[in-house]
Amino acid sequence: MRTWKFGDNIDTDAIVPGRYLTIYDPATLASHAFEGTRDEYAKQVKEGDIIVAGRNFGCGSSREHAPLALSGAGVRFIIARSFARIFYRNAISVGLLPLVCPDADKIPDGSELVVQMNEGYVVSGGKRYAIEPVPGFLQEIVNAGGLVEYARRLEEVKTCTGSRS
C-alpha cells in the first residue's frame, strides 16, 4: 500500500513506451511500466500500491495500454492533482479509480496511504487529504466494475438522454 510519487505532466509514453504497444496483456505491460522514467517501479511495485502524481497525469496518447499496465501491476487507485481527459476515462474503463486530490503534491513518496472513498479523503502519514467525488455518470460505470461490465448489462442505449454532470 505504499505510494509511488510522480510529478506533473506524466505522459502515456512515460507510462508505457511506444515500442510495447503490440502487447495487450496487463501483466506483461506492467513489466514495462514507467520504463525509462522510473525503472525500479516495475520491479518493486506490489499489489495495492498507489500512484500519486501532480497535474495532467496521463496526458498524450489514447493508448489504453497505459492504465492497463498500472492495473496489471495491481494498482487500484491513482491520486493526482488533475488528469488528462482520455486517460481519466480509460482508467475508469479498465477498473482503475482516478481520484482528484488538490493537495496530492504534499503526499510523500513511499508513504503508507489509505483511501477512504466514502468519507472523501485519503490518509497518509497521519494527515488527511481531501479527494473529489467521481462525477455522477461515471460512478455508475465504476459501480458496475468497469465499462465492459456496464455494457454487458445493456441491451441497447437510449441516445440523446443525459444529465448534468
Binding site: S62, R63, E64, P67, I86, R89, N90, S93, V94, P135, F137, G146, L147, V148, A151, L154, E156, V157, T159, G162, S165
Partner: peptide, 20 residues
C-alpha cells in the same frame, strides 16, 4: 475526439457514447 479502446468497444456495439 479521441477515445480509448474500451470506449471504442462500446461505440462499435452501440453506435453511441457518453460525452460531457
Amino acid at each position: 475526439t479521441g477515445i480509448g479502446s474500451t470506449d471504442m468497444g462500446f461505440v462499435l456495439k452501440f453506435g453511441a457514447l457518453y460525452f460531457r
